[in-house]
Design a protein around this nucleic acid. Structure first.
Length: 639
DNA sequence: CGATAGCCTT
């Protein structure tokens, strides 16, 4: 009989054994039983069933090493049922596993998302060490149960167990959400008592915690103070800034680290793509894309998904679709990214087509983000009735989607756009969630478009009650009153604004020319070519007035005369960026990005400019794209 | 002895 080690072991242990490997394993099983150590070793990376079956059949006595090998395999393969069989074998044979094996069981159950089982093993432990505590805390952290993780961590300290660097990295991950920073800072101060205060992993978790809580400066200080830097800590700081919308800062850090020679991984590229998407920096985005291809990074769906989103946010949906089509194993995020892309470009037909394709052929389950994308796609794409139909379908099917306030806001939008303002108001009154600013804002926008001042007044007052500090709301409501000729109410809005000391988020627009971003604020004086640009805006205004442009002075709520109002309107950041685009890029389409919703006057201005200057203009505001060609906008003047 | 850890897309 040939001893087992004469076989080609690597083929025996391979996950998908070549022809005959199974037979060899069977041979080994029959010839070498009942030596469990051999048998379990042969199961390395292979099917567990045979060894487990033998185990159950023969009721052999198992030793520590056998359980260890088997559980190790179960963990690697995330084999819940097989793990349970090993576990129950221990119980049946009255085997008292040591702390080590019990911890392995916890890890196994955690990996299989069976936290109840893990907790049961944990609770039954006669003694625990730091590893078992950390494994259990990590279980809660991995599954998003932040508060449970924190509770257990506190319990651990109370029991006198000493946390180690693993425990701290794990628990800091759970310090997110509403109270995350509060707990995270306490843990930060607790860390001082331990010798690994400047540990690389602990430091990365710490800076990530601060960055996610919006404390980017603290995060940066910790990053600078790390004992060394690696790709994860670098990605953490870059994505931290990007997630806070500090895209330019993220880009600066990325470049600095790149020059220092840091070797990035695919996660880093995902993070920098997020920043470039926010900036709509298409040329830089293309560079990153090319770089990723040259690096021959293995195929990462997450990276492909962020490329879809980057091209879509930069206005190149054709590239997005090409990448989408090239992904062999699309996840729901890939589908959603593509759907959201069509939605923000106002392409309702494509949204519905892709949604049908998703349901019919993909085999991927839609989630609530999908629903949101489809509903908003229908409203942005002029398919209000289709959108309402899909909502009814989903609502009646009850597919287990968690309908959030955003979903209801979409429905209000659909009803509002289709002119059913009374129904929209009824819908808001009947919905099971408390209406928020987005809901009332959506209704108010619909009232402005359909010139319904009475329902608009209801929506506006509710909105101002919820968000008294948001200047944009006052502007929309005043616009509505102004267009209805209700000047008394316009004046009262203006006074209300003064009284409540409303803060304006500064409007900001930018444009990418020759791989450089040129940023403009309202009435900007900072750009080196400011004189030229302001003169250009004035020229443009004169030229388009000749074909019917009338400045929408009701957009200005300052208490000044109309001449002043017109001057203020001409200083809007999107007009400056548009003018700069006309000067700096000959003949090419102009792509302007704005951080807020585009104002009525600027939208109208851009339409006239596209016509008079025969230039395609693309405006991206914080919600959607406006593709303006020859005086017509893809949004149909509803946004 | 071993078992426990940080970054990411819609």
């Amino acid at each position: 009989m040939m001893p087992y080690y004469k076989f080609n072991l690597s083929s025996v242990i391979s996950r998908k054994p070549f022809f005959g490997a199974l037979r060899i394993r069977r041979l080994a099983l029959s010839s070498l039983a009942p030596n469990w150590t051999y048998l379990t070793t042969l199961c390395l990376n292979g099917p567990l069933n045979e060894a487990l079956l033998e185990m159950a059949k023969q009721g052999l006595e198992m030793k520590f090493k056998d359980y260890d090998t088997l559980l190790n395999q179960c963990v690697k393969q995330r084999a819940y049922r097989e793990g349970q069989r090993v576990h129950s074998h221990m119980i049946k044979t009255h085997y008292e596993p040591p702390v080590y094996l019990r911890t392995r069981l916890i890890v196994l159950y955690v990996k299989c998302d069976c936290l109840m089982d893990a907790r049961y093993v944990f609770d039954e432990m006669p003694e625990r060490n730091v590893v078992s505590w950390t494994a259990m805390v990590s279980g809660y952290a991995q599954n998003g149960h932040c508060l449970k993780a924190l509770d257990l961590f506190v319990e651990m300290l109370r029991e006198g167990a000493e946390p180690n660097e693993f425990t701290f990295t794990t628990i800091l991950r759970s310090c997110i959400g509403k109270y995350g920073l509060f707990h995270g800072m306490q843990i930060h101060s607790l860390l001082v008592k331990y010798p690994f205060g400047s540990h690389l992993f602990v430091g990365s978790s710490l800076l990530d915690m601060y960055a996610k809580a919006g404390r980017t400066q603290e995060a940066l200080i910790i990053f600078e103070g790390l004992p060394e830097r690696d790709v994860v800590s670098c990605t953490s700081i870059i994505s931290g800034f990007a997630q806070q919308g500090l895209n330019e800062e993220a880009l600066v850090i990325f470049r600095k680290l790149q020059i220092e020679g840091m070797n990035f991984n695919y996660v880093t590229y995902v993070s920098i793509l997020t920043a470039l998407s926010g900036l709509a920096a298409i040329e830089l985005g293309r560079q990153v894309h090319g770089h990723v291809l040259r690096l021959e990074l293995p195929f990462f769906v997450v990276l492909q998904n962020s490329l879809i989103d980057m091209y879509s946010k930069c206005g190149h949906l054709d590239y997005s679709r090409r990448i989408f089509n090239s992904i062999p194993e699309k996840t729901i995020v890939s589908w959603n990214a593509m759907l959201v892309g069509y939605s923000r470009h106002g392409m309702g037909k494509e949204v519905v087509e892709l949604y049908d394709l998703l349901k019919e052929v993909s085999g991927v389950r839609p989630n609530n983000v999908t629903v949101l994308a489809v509903l908003s796609g229908c409203s942005h794409g002029g398919m209000e009735l289709k959108g309402l139909e899909i909502f009814d379908e989903i609502f009646s099917e009850d597919d287990g989607f968690e309908l959030t306030i955003e979903h209801y806001a979409c429905v209000v939008d659909l009803l509002g756009r289709s002119g059913q303002l009374d129904r929209a108001l009824q819908f808001i009154k009947q919905m099971p969630l408390e209406p928020n600013a987005a809901i009332w804002g959506s209704l108010l926008g619909a009232c402005r478009f359909h010139q319904n001042a009475s329902i608009g007044k209801i929506a506006g007052n509710r909105l101002l009650g919820i968000e008294p500090e948001n200047a944009g709301n006052y502007v929309v409501l005043a616009n509505l009153y102004a267009s209805a000729g209700r000047w008394e109410e316009v004046r009262s809005i203006r006074e209300m604004m003064k009284r409540k000391s409303v803060v304006k988020v500064p409007g900001k627009s930018w444009i990418e020319v020759d791989q450089t971003l040129h940023t403009f604020l309202a009435s900007d004086q900072a750009h080196p070519r400011k004189e030229e640009i302001l003169q250009k805006v004035r020229d443009m205004s004169v030229r388009i007035k000749g074909v019917g442009y009338v400045p929408a002075v009701s957009c200005v709520l300052h208490d000044v005369d109309d001449e002043q109002k017109e001057k203020l309107l001409l200083g809007h950041s999107e007009k400056l960026a548009l003018a700069f685009g006309l000067i700096a890029s000959q003949g090419k389409p102009i792509r302007v990005i704005k951080n807020l919703r585009i104002c009525v006057d600027c939208h109208n201005f851009a339409k006239f400019v596209s016509q008079v200057y025969s230039r395609e203009v693309t405006l991206r505001d914080n919600v959607r794209f406006h593709h303006i060609v020859d005086g017509e906008c893809s949004c149909g003047d509803y946004w």
